[in-house]
């Protein structure tokens, strides 16, 4: 190789190397941007595709009555985990009322709460729930993999968990995560 030519080549290589940081940026920036938009709390439920765990717990509204997993058979429904100690649940409450008015069956799981304040909550704010499971010890919550309130599960007519949302359920979340699935589960013969 002619010396001059070799110098030209190494010059070109040096110049190309100047673009390495730009290239690294081009790769990292979209990755980090994607990471920014992700909700680290949004975890898929380990129960997806599995039945609601077996339980026998009292009803919040009629403490003498015992409820169990048979509650979920026969209709596509929502199971909403809530508690009076949970401020986000108060924010979410009006939307649950709205869903109930639309005819969506909503069941409640009153999670690690006290009976009296919880009943007062339903009296004061309205009761969107067909039935509220009173889980004072949090045992059913633990079996469901609940790690905070509010959480909402979409359960099919055989009592199988199909989806979960961690955090406040609102119109946006309903449209994005639940609405289509809810519709398709409603009409199983069309699938």
């Amino acid at each position: 190789m002619v010396p001059g030519c070799r110098a030209a080549v190494s010059d070109a290589v040096t110049r190309l190397k100047l673009f390495v940081p730009l290239l690294a940026f081009a790769v990292l920036a979209p990755l980090l941007y994607w990471g920014l938009g992700r909700d680290p709390g949004a975890m898929p439920t380990a129960l997806k595709g599995k039945p609601i765990p077996a339980f026998t717990l009292p009803s919040l509204t009629t403490p003498d009555a015992q409820l169990d997993q048979a509650l979920f058979a026969g209709q596509v429904s929502l199971l909403n985990v809530w508690a009076t100690w949970c401020p986000s649940c108060r924010i979410e409450h009006p939307y649950l009322m709205h869903l109930a008015e639309q005819g969506v069956p909503v069941f409640g799981l009153n999670y690690k709460d006290e009976g009296e304040p919880a009943r007062r909550w339903l009296k004061d704010l309205g009761n969107p729930y067909r039935e509220v499971i009173f889980d004072a010890s949090g045992r059913l919550g633990l079996d469901l993999g609940v790690f905070g309130a509010p959480e909402t599960y979409l359960v099919d007519s055989r009592g199988i968990v199909r989806a979960r949302h961690v955090g406040v359920l609102d119109e946006r979340v309903w449209q994005k995560e639940f609405a289509a699935l809810y519709q398709s589960l409603q009409n199983p013969e069309e699938r």
């Binding site: 975890m43 898929p44 439920t45 380990a46 129960l47 633990l142 079996d143 469901l144 993999g145 790690f147």
Partner: peptide, 8 residues
């Protein structure tokens, strides 16, 4: 634990 909370 994994059955309830996933491998996470």
């Amino acid at each position: 634990l994994v059955a309830r909370y996933g491998e996470f």
